[in-house]
Design a protein around this nucleic acid. Structure first.
Lengths: 191, 191
DNA sequence: CGATTTTTTGAATCATATCAACGTACGTGG
DNA sequence: CCACGTACGTTGATATGATTCAAAAAATCG
């Protein structure tokens, strides 16, 4: 199952079998069940998570006690609270499995060693963060550009399978509005 | 004036004088006047910009013809449309000087050469993007967590000098609401 | 099948936008 | 260095997108 990761890595850097085996040794593989937490708000954030299969989400609980989802991570995506990870501080978020998932865990100190041993991985992570940042910039643009309803249509058009397989209240949470309002939007489309 | 950049670089990687001189040769230094554009929506995005002094902003023009600012960059920050830069595609944004500014320009092909010659710089940019991504994640959290009014107070509390020296309509644009509403918020504070 | 979770509906309310008009400040040319 | 014009900021009335709350309907799970 770590083959997923090998394919993915090789899109960015040249890695032979031997190297890959060594690189793998810096990671831990973990199965997480639906609704299980990998990280809790206030807990120390000492790892990043790479999704081999399934789906994770990141959320926080706002002052009204409502869960606000800020990110999903599906196959081939990394997820963590990077601010907390970088400074080894308590996290501002929860990370939870949306479905039963397989995850690779990279501890902060393992990452440091990995980067020392394999300068290639420095390059790999540079790509990853650059890409993640680029996606984030565009996402912020959408948040400013679109009404909530437009956000929904946009998301639905770009990730129809994902919208299919994920409960609506999570989609609403990710898009930053209430499930009731999503229901209203959908009823407008139907009629 | 490129000393600013040297100090900054040295926070992340060890660079001696000789190396720094060589690294510098990959960059171009440019003075931009207030309101001058460094990048235009639809134009090819072939460079990143590092701010030595002054202030830049990134914005797009929404369907109503209103400028929406999505980012500011002050001293020691990089700014570009990373999605467009990575894929050498037309930009979705404008980048404009808010004040007279000094900027270092790194062309995409120069960056590639630079990274080949100086693996250290791979590490440097990995840090930069990681940090930028982390900041972006937190920003998205704030966008979900706070009302527009709270966003203003938060921004005002964290960057009071910046709010002082920047026209209100740009602050409003960055926070995603109208100048009229900002006026209303301020009048509430006053009373 | 019943119990729990998720989605839908509708009415009242709130945060923020819009538009228009007026006041203020500021920079540029004389 | 002043005056004028344009850009910026404020105010108030009205409109709109989205939330809240309560309750019913539908879907899912053990």
């Amino acid at each position: 199952m770590t083959d997923t990761f090998k394919q993915h890595l090789r899109k960015f850097v040249d890695i032979d079998e031997e190297e890959f085996a060594e690189i793998l040794s810096y990671f831990t593989v973990l199965e997480v069940g639906k609704k299980e937490n990998l990280l809790t708000e206030g807990g120390m954030c000492k790892s990043c998570f790479f999704v081999l299969s399934g789906c994770l989400r990141m959320f926080f609980i706002n002052e009204k006690g409502v869960e606000q989802t800020t990110q999903f991570a599906i196959e081939n995506w990394w997820i963590t609270d990077n601010m907390a990870y970088e400074h080894e501080q308590p996290s501002a978020f929860y990370i939870q499995a949306v479905e039963n998932s397989q995850v690779m865990i990279l501890h902060h100190y393992s990452q440091e060693e990995l980067l020392q041993q394999f300068p290639k991985m420095e390059r790999y992570f540079r790509f990853i963060y650059q890409r993640a940042y680029a996606a984030s910039q565009r996402r912020i643009k959408f948040l400013y550009e679109f009404t909530r309803e437009e956000l929904y249509h946009h998301f639905n058009d770009h990730y129809p399978e994902f919208v299919q397989r994920t409960p609506q209240y999570l989609i609403a949470s990710y898009l930053g509005f209430t499930p009731e309002y999503l229901s209203e939007i959908r009823s407008r489309v139907r009629s």
